[in-house]
Write a protein that binds this DNA or RNA. Structure first.
Lengths: 224, 224
DNA sequence: ATGAAACATGAATCGCCCTTCAAGTTCATC
DNA sequence: GATGAACTTGAAGGGCGATTCATGTTTCAT
């Protein structure tokens, strides 16, 4: 492929990211993409065999860029808690600059499930590596690293949805602090204090099956 | 509307939940829904003005059922940490019994954004109420309740995705324990121990702006 | 210059599906 | 057993959009 062709291909990819983000996969037409790219309809099929292919490539590329950005913004930070904070911040920044990220990735579930899982799986893989290392170093408590990775990804995803995508900016830093408050305490390797009332009822600290249920009374909710 | 009509309407709603879950909103046709319902095509438009309406109703109904189930499965539990555990468990159970939940709700983002936000907003609202109450009672640490609510929803969502939707069952209880381990420590109202190295670098415990960055060196990743 | 490989074009094909509608059926009530 | 309101039916109408293809244009090594 000549440089000229590569340029056209890139134009299509960039336009596709925007169009898919704005209208969703199904409602986005090839004509939308080529129009935005400033190329003819037929040209599309010179570079991509079908609509699904360009979509998958957009998702894979977004994931790769995001993972690289986070990895880079975390270089040289020695403590895992600080890595989490900066990684989260980098993620929020990326999401703000790419409002299509969320919408595109979520569409992937329906367009190409494999692509969708790959996105999170790769993310989790890197996460597990970093967390395991931090556990070995005694920086954080030893826990199931994959479960932890998905917890942290979930926190980032939902906070980003609520305070980056839905609301513009206000209080993002405050929200980041709140999340890190939860996370840093949750990961703190130091044993909890021996005094005071337990943080959870004694029967249900961990690995209890249905041990947490206390007496039921009226079917009136008290929470959630 | 007579009982006969209500029955037909319900058949359409139930079929729609499955069809929308299986094929996604756009690829699901009205004909698919009526076929599965055992009803004629035209009958659909007696009960719903268009395709979008039935979809929104499916989402709203799923959200309502889920919230009610969680609220009920948590009645009579006095400590918030235990409420979290049982609520999470109830959510996983619901997700297992309704594999369409995830797929349907996520489509909502593209079909009717308002409906999508309403789903999470209502969920969060109940969460905030319960968490605030628990803070007032001294059961958990005082934190931004809405940020916390979205963190907890994110954890539930991602764990459910990974260990209920993607994988069948194995280790769900173990994963639940891991999550509760993180959460119960993170919410523990008792002050952290005064001894030992800090859980996070002293400059970045909270409300620091860009205070966590230490010296940068080579752009080689160490994590994530 | 020139031929061919790479690239670009957009009208036409083909199939799908939302929605409408005119006509038939059921059923409770009087 | 007749009436009409509620319900059901499925065959078009009409629009849209992915993909194809025959044709034209650019580039560049020779």
């Amino acid at each position: 492929m000549t440089p000229r062709g590569q340029k056209t291909r890139q134009k299509l990819l960039r336009a596709a990211e925007v169009i898919f983000g704005e209208k969703g996969y199904e409602r986005a037409s090839i004509a939308d993409i080529t129009r935005k790219s400033g190329v003819a309809l037929g040209t599309f099929y010179v570079y991509f065999p079908d609509k699904q292919s360009i979509f998958v490539e957009v998702v894979d590329e977004l994931g790769e860029r995001l993972r690289r950005l986070i990895a880079e913004s975390v270089v040289g930070i020695s403590h895992r808690i600080d890595v989490e904070r900066e990684g989260l911040r980098a993620f929020f920044e990326f999401a703000r600059e790419h409002p299509n990220l969320y919408r595109v990735v979520r569409q992937a579930e329906f367009v190409d499930e494999e692509c969708y899982r790959r996105y999170y799986d790769r993310f989790a893989r890197g996460y597990v590596r970093g967390l395991t290392q931090a556990m070995d170093d005694g920086q954080i408590r030893r826990m199931d690293p994959e479960a932890l990775a998905y917890c942290l990804m979930g926190i980032g995803d939902f906070l980003g949805m609520r305070w980056v995508i839905w609301e513009e900016d206000p209080g993002l830093e405050r929200v980041l602090d709140a999340a890190m408050d939860l996370i840093s305490r949750g990961l703190d390797p130091r044993p909890p204090p021996r005094t005071g009332k337990a943080s959870t009822s004694k029967t249900a600290t961990a690995s209890s099956k249905r041990g947490a249920r206390s007496a039921r009374s009226t079917p009136r909710s008290t929470a959630s």
